[in-house]
Amino acid sequence: MSLLEIRDLHVRFGATAAVRGADIVVERGETHCIVGESGCGKSVTSLAVMGLLAKGAQRRAGRMAFDGIDLQPMSERQLSRLRGDRMAMIFQEPMTSLNPAYTVGSQMAEVRTRHKGGSRRAALERAEELLAKVGITAPGLRLGQFPHQLSGGLRQRVMIAMALMNDPELLIADEPTTALDVTIQAQILRLLAQLQSELGLGLMLITHDLGVVARVATRVSVMYAGQVVESAPTAELFANPQHPYTRGLLDCLPVPGKLPPGSQLGTIPGMVPKLTEDFRGCGFRSRCGFAQPACENEIPLTGDNHLCRCVLAQ
């Protein structure tokens, strides 16, 4: 049984379709990266799994299950018991996701006592242990500090430690290193990869950065205009991209050593279409060099291990 199974997820905000066909399966011990540009629906997908969508959003899915438990009929109360416990989440901006009015220690301890009970002292001990585990020096001292007293890299480490308080099985990280400097990004990603293999976590990592994807992912799903358009094991996706969007995206990247400096980068002309509720078919067709009339129909995600949503792949 897969740790997380999402089939045919749709999310609408009023007349706008944010997600219109996301299929994502996360196995235990694997890092599944969701990659795409702004507005492609990658963050909304993760929020839908956690039941954290804004009021007024309409969600429907063929299946949405965590460890075989169907998430769809769950009440807010049942979900909140799971969240922060067996499934945890890390957000992009650690400053806004930590409470500025409480110390690091009390925020971390609350996560533990709320789900697992036990004494506050035991929870604080656990917090100190985890802060050390994520590479924070003088963890005892940090427990008494407020978020504003920490640097961005430290705050993100605190977020990771906090997410691990209850030994989650699934960790969803939404752009966890985007707000950080490159040297800190490398440290945090290294830490995540290390924790993931040590604790056997299923990690769903959402990012726009193909460099991050290449280095940490076991499997990659590419999203465009609300749909997963391609999904494959990492090496396979980079070596043999199938969908015209994935190929275009890889051509846009300046890669040191691969492309002579000053040469033209590949570009994807045009813009993402407006996703009204009656939008059907491939969202990339208006920018695609291979578009044909059949692209206006709904296209299924096909393939065995290397999945692609394109008429050319049928």
Binding site: G135, I136, T137, S151, G153, L154, V182, T183, Q185, A186, Q187, L189, R190, A193, D209, L210, G211, V212, V213, A214, R215, V216, A217, T234, A235, F238, A239, L250, L253, V255, P256, G257
Partner: peptide, 25 residues
């Protein structure tokens, strides 16, 4: 050298390098 080592080029299989800068900011 540390900065260059932290650049994650889209090359699968290389993993995330240890830039060795410690955590003093």
């Amino acid at each position: 050298r540390a900065l260059l080592a932290s650049v994650l080029t889209p090359e699968p299989g290389l993993g995330v390098p240890d830039v060795g800068l410690g955590d003093t900011m």
